[in-house]
Structure formats: C-alpha cells, structure tokens
C-alpha cells in the first residue's frame, strides 16, 4: 500500500491501481469520502452514523464494479451516481417510516437560498438564521428527485452534463427538473410565509 495519496494521480490511474491492489482503494476513498458523506447527508438528512453506513456501502459497490467504470464519464460522476442510487434506495426503503431529517446544516439551507438569490431576495442577515429552519424543512418537503436536483446543482456544484451522468437522465430533462424544483421550492416558500421576495 502506498504511504500517501499521490496527488498528481488521476482518478483513472487510481482505479487501475485499485484493481490490482485493494489497498489502493484507500486513495480513491480519501479523495471522495468527504464529498460523498456530505452529499448523502444532504440528500437523506440522516445522522452521521447512518450516512457513514450508506457511504460504506457506496464504496463497496464502487470497488465491486470497478471493471464496469465507464471511462467516458468522470469518476466523480460515477461515484455520485452510485451514491445517489444507494441514497435513493435508502429513502425508498424507509419511506414507510417517514424518516424525518434530524440533522441538516442550517448553512446548507441558507446556501441554497443564497444561490437561488438570483431569483430570490433574502431579507436582512438577522432574519436569515431564523429562516434557516424553514428553508430546510421546505427542502425536505420537496420530492426526493427535486431535492436531489437542487442539491447537486447548487450545493454540490455539478454542471448539467455531470448531473445527466449522475441521475442518468438527458440534459434537457435535467434542465426541466431543475426548473420544476425551483418553482416548487418557491411555491412552498410562499405557502409557508417564508419572507422571500421573488424576483420577477
């Protein structure tokens, strides 16, 4: 096993090394662990332990399917795709229990609102903190597919092409999905008297 992650190595090189030596998977995990933990956490709203369980399963699946990695894709898109599928499976299997998000970052919620600020004008800074809880609850009221689209685009900073590869939908559909997600988010914000001022 290498002593440290070779910073100059590409993802593809790390994949090839991991195929011949399982210890090399460590470098891939180190590169993606925090991103995938954060993504799954944002998407599912689960606690730290549950998120780690899901991400552990994601890495196991990545390792099992390394030979199926499509080099036409970015490795990050492929890893996010597996994480997305695993998280969605979790959400579906727990749908009956109506698991509520118990730990989400206020910062995330406000970030999302900030990013949507090209269309949404937030009030003063003091009110922002109070509104974080409301923004967060609205986010988790959205259908998972809309929530996922907003998280990937505005919090994970994925472009349309990457989102297309992650969600396995054509780019035109991604654009439609995002528009609908934003519209639904705004409608729910208005219904909940969230004092957001929507730009025309």
């Amino acid at each position: 096993m290498s002593d440290s992650t070779p910073p100059q190595s590409t993802d593809l090189e790390l994949v090839r090394r991991a195929l011949s030596d399982q210890e090399e998977l460590l470098h891939l995990m180190e590169r993606y662990e925090s991103r995938l933990l954060r993504y799954v956490h944002r998407l599912t709203g689960l606690g730290q332990q549950c998120v780690e369980d899901v991400v552990q399963e994601v890495f196991i699946k990545i390792y099992r399917n390394l030979n199926n990695f499509d080099q036409a894709l970015a490795f990050s898109s492929w890893a996010y795709r597996i994480a997305h599928n695993e998280a969605m499976n979790y959400i579906r299997s727990n749908n009956g229990r109506k698991t509520l998000p118990i730990e989400t970052d206020d910062e995330d919620s406000l970030n999302l609102a900030d990013i949507l600020a090209s269309e949404v004008d937030l009030p003063d800074e003091a009110a922002r903190a109070e509104q974080a809880q409301l923004v967060r609850s609205i986010l988790y009221t959205l259908k998972p597919v809309y929530r996922d689209a907003l998280i990937l685009r505005y919090l994970e900073d994925q472009d349309y092409a990457a989102m297309s590869d992650i969600l396995q939908k054509p780019m035109g559909t991604i654009a439609t999905l995002l528009n609908r997600a934003k519209t639904q988010f705004k409608q729910l914000a208005q219904k909940n008297n969230l004092t957001l001022h929507f730009a025309s």
Binding site: Q22, M29, E30, E33, E52, Q56, F59, I60, Y63, N68
Partner: peptide
C-alpha cells in the same frame, strides 16, 4: 486513514470482496 476508509477496507478483506471480472 479515516475510520470510514478503514472500515471499508476491513469489510473488503473480511468478506473477501473482489471486483467483478
């Protein structure tokens, strides 16, 4: 090495998980 990475590697070794051909 993080706790998560270590647990993944441990599981791979313990269950003798290998990449599919």
């Amino acid at each position: 090495m993080s706790k998560l990475s270590q647990s993944v590697l441990d599981k791979i070794k313990k269950e003798q998980i290998a990449p599919r051909a």
